Simulated scan of single mutants.
Amino acid sequence: MDNLKYLLNKKIHLKITPEICFDGILTDIGDDIVVVFDGQRYVYIPLVHVHKIRLSRSDEEIGEPTGFLLSKQTESISYHTILTNAKMLFIEIHVLGNQSLYGYIIDVLNDYFVFYSPI
């Protein structure tokens, strides 16, 4: 996704579905994933879910990205790399609308991952 590199470290607006839009600072981009900082946390979004990316027109301030960023361990990030680095960390996965699952990624394979939730 070299054509999106000019958006790095800029405030962007992501449209994931017609109902779900997201504003934040684009901190990293790979061939199949984008990393956005929303002011409180890093959000890892697969590009197959993104419908539109543009510079944000919002006046709302978002603080500088701080804290732990999984992707800085490698030069080029990918969906598989992010999932592998997230193994055994307590994470939140958005599944549908505003519904989330909380738990741990136990294993990552070629076409699926094993997720354990204590709920």
Results as ranks from 00 to 15, higher is better:
residue 98 N to C: 07
residue 95 V to W: 11
residue 69 L to S: 13
residue 47 L to K: 02
residue 62 I to G: 06
residue 83 L to K: 12
residue 77 I to E: 01
residue 118 P to M: 10
residue 66 T to V: 15
residue 102 Y to T: 01
residue 12 I to D: 03
residue 106 I to M: 11
residue 118 P to S: 13
residue 33 I to R: 09
residue 55 L to C: 01
residue 20 I to H: 06
residue 107 D to N: 14
residue 56 S to P: 08
residue 83 L to M: 09
residue 30 G to D: 03
residue 91 I to E: 07
residue 38 D to C: 05
residue 86 A to W: 01
residue 28 D to W: 10
residue 81 T to Q: 11
residue 29 I to F: 00
residue 40 Q to F: 11
residue 108 V to H: 12
residue 60 E to K: 10
residue 108 V to A: 08
residue 118 P to H: 05
residue 80 H to T: 06
residue 33 I to W: 03
residue 73 Q to E: 15
residue 9 N to V: 08
residue 68 F to K: 13
residue 17 T to H: 01
residue 78 S to Q: 10
residue 13 H to Q: 10
residue 55 L to R: 15
residue 107 D to R: 15
residue 93 I to T: 01
residue 18 P to E: 15
residue 116 Y to V: 04
residue 1 M to Y: 07
residue 9 N to S: 14
residue 58 S to W: 01
residue 52 K to N: 06
residue 91 I to L: 13
residue 51 H to R: 14
residue 39 G to C: 10
residue 44 Y to V: 06
residue 61 E to S: 11
residue 49 H to G: 05
residue 16 I to W: 03
residue 113 F to V: 02
residue 15 K to G: 02
residue 27 T to Q: 13
residue 119 I to E: 07
residue 16 I to G: 01
residue 1 M to S: 14
residue 80 H to R: 15
residue 110 N to M: 08
residue 83 L to S: 11
residue 59 D to S: 07
residue 7 L to W: 00
residue 37 F to E: 04
residue 25 I to R: 08
residue 61 E to F: 12
residue 97 G to W: 02
residue 45 I to N: 02
residue 89 L to P: 00
residue 23 D to K: 03
residue 10 K to L: 14
residue 16 I to A: 00
residue 61 E to T: 12
residue 91 I to G: 03
residue 108 V to T: 09
residue 79 Y to F: 14
residue 63 G to T: 05
residue 83 L to E: 07
residue 38 D to F: 08
residue 53 I to F: 03
residue 74 T to D: 11
residue 4 L to Q: 10
residue 25 I to P: 03
residue 119 I to Y: 09
residue 80 H to W: 01
residue 83 L to A: 05
residue 42 Y to T: 06
residue 56 S to E: 03
residue 75 E to D: 12
residue 22 F to E: 10
residue 30 G to T: 07
residue 87 K to C: 04
residue 115 F to P: 04
residue 5 K to D: 07
residue 52 K to E: 12
residue 21 C to V: 09
residue 72 K to I: 13
residue 37 F to V: 06
residue 3 N to R: 09
residue 105 I to N: 08
residue 23 D to H: 06
residue 55 L to N: 10
residue 49 H to E: 13
residue 87 K to W: 00
residue 21 C to A: 11
residue 23 D to A: 02
residue 113 F to K: 07
residue 93 I to A: 04
residue 31 D to C: 02
residue 109 L to V: 03
residue 35 V to T: 15
